[in-house]
Design a binder for these strands. Structure first.
Lengths: 112, 112
DNA sequence: ATCTATAGTTCAATGGTTCCGAACTATGGA
DNA sequence: TCCATAGTTCGGAACCATTGAACTATAGAT
């Protein structure tokens, strides 16, 4: 009878936010190179914070949302904090812009 | 004894160049989201045309080069023509800039 | 013409990544 | 305590990327 304690949420490495200096251009572009993630980023850019569910179309599977947010966090694009049973996701605009000047604006502007 | 005629090179669909209006932003970003392809694009941006081999570091496997060029062509970033036994690759700068204004410049500027 | 070297493509195998249902944790409220 | 809701984790299937080996094509030399 083994005792495996699993820590979810705040303690998980998926919730860790990298220093932007450790994010490569290729990794940043990879995070942006997906239609759903672009949609999420667009929505996040329009309000100052959104729950994970609210950042995606209604029919998006939960596990898919969770994975996409992990990618966005790893690229330094999104900061996620726990707030009750929801997550509070916000764009790390200043950090990302300082590391990749003009990139986010150009990408958002090019999303027809 | 079957006769399979294979057409290489000029006739192959990998050598086809899309109209930029059919290239999505996500596809363009995907093509840019790779360190080797960024290097290739950088090199292509510095001269007006390069053979496939000359666009990559010396130790890059031939098949890898070939695949990466196929991705760049599919994204409308590169135009390839046959020239003897070499390929003549050039950036489709004007086409790409018209479709995604500022994107290529911003990406190249952010490549430290 | 035939041979040889070179540039690139294609194929196939392997390994990695992504998607998503199912099972789970965590929190808030009846 | 029970239930509903928000999100995470796991595992398998589908998809994608990498690269050696076999191939095509062309240029140049003999």
């Amino acid at each position: 009878m083994e005792m495996i304690k699993r820590f979810y949420m705040g303690a998980m490495d998926r919730l860790l936010h990298p220093n932007l200096k450790d994010v490569s251009l290729a990794a940043a572009l990879h995070a942006l190179a997906d239609p759903l993630r672009l949609e999420m980023i667009q929505r996040l850019s329009e309000t100052d914070c959104l729950s994970s569910g609210a950042a995606c179309p209604n029919d998006t599977p939960k596990s898919t949302i969770s994975n996409h947010f992990a990618v966005l966090r790893a690229a330094g694009l999104v900061e996620t904090t726990a707030d009750g049973r929801e997550r509070r996701n916000r764009l790390r605009r200043a950090d990302f812009d300082a590391r990749f000047p003009g990139l986010l604006d150009t990408v958002l502007a090019n999303r027809s």
